[in-house]
Amino acid sequence: MTVRHDEFEIEPLSMENKCTPRSAAAHMLYEVVDPFQLVEPGGILDVSASTYESLSERVTRVRGGQWMPMPYTMKLEGARAGPYQTVMLIGIEDPQVLQNVDEFEMRLKSCLIDRIIASFGVCAAKFSVSLRIYGWNAISGRRRPPSTAAPIEVGVLFVVTAETQELANQMAKACNPYFFHFPVRTDIELPSYAFPFTPAEIARGRVYEFILNHVVSARDGLELTRTEWYQW
């Protein structure tokens, strides 16, 4: 990369790679809210008038970015350590289950919640059970339209969230036989779904949820940081 007073050129290190005007400009899209203004600690970079010019097949020159100095600020983001989760996974190929996945999920979930309340009573005041049906709607959690074809198999991820890891583990253990054998019909013996491993319960640890989203005014970039020097 060659940086001059009011422009720069980018050339990849590998001769097989290219930096094109499109790939250079597209950099301002990646994982940012605003493609024209990039807020940095001491100002805002505005690229709405930037130009991207091809100098060769591999080299692009960028000009026209405007730097608007602002008082120095730093972004402060932080996650909170929350409750604990334990998970279990089963696979299901039984066509009778797959014919009506939504109803199966609803009945299974309500059975598991009842089971936890029956076993743990008041100490279960703060818990939640979530089922994610991979192969059906695990990613969005949204209902599929009624016309959707049945899946050919699904993975069901059970997630229980509780105040301590021990409690989450015990709740998963209490649910285990019901999760594993939940009947889709009552006139035959209980089915067994496909556990991929045993023990089935996996202690997943704490939930870390982003909670802190602040901008802090600072004199300069070092005011909020600490530097320690080591000699060896």
């Binding site: 005007p21 899209l29 809210v33 991207y52 409750p83 939640s128 939930v207 949820e209």
Partner: peptide, 19 residues
């Protein structure tokens, strides 16, 4: 310059929430 429409929205719940 990129023939792109970019739309950004605040998540209803932050990254990493319980569910």
């Amino acid at each position: 310059a990129l023939r792109v429409v970019k739309i950004s929205f605040a998540r209803p719940r932050p990254q990493g929430w319980v569910h």
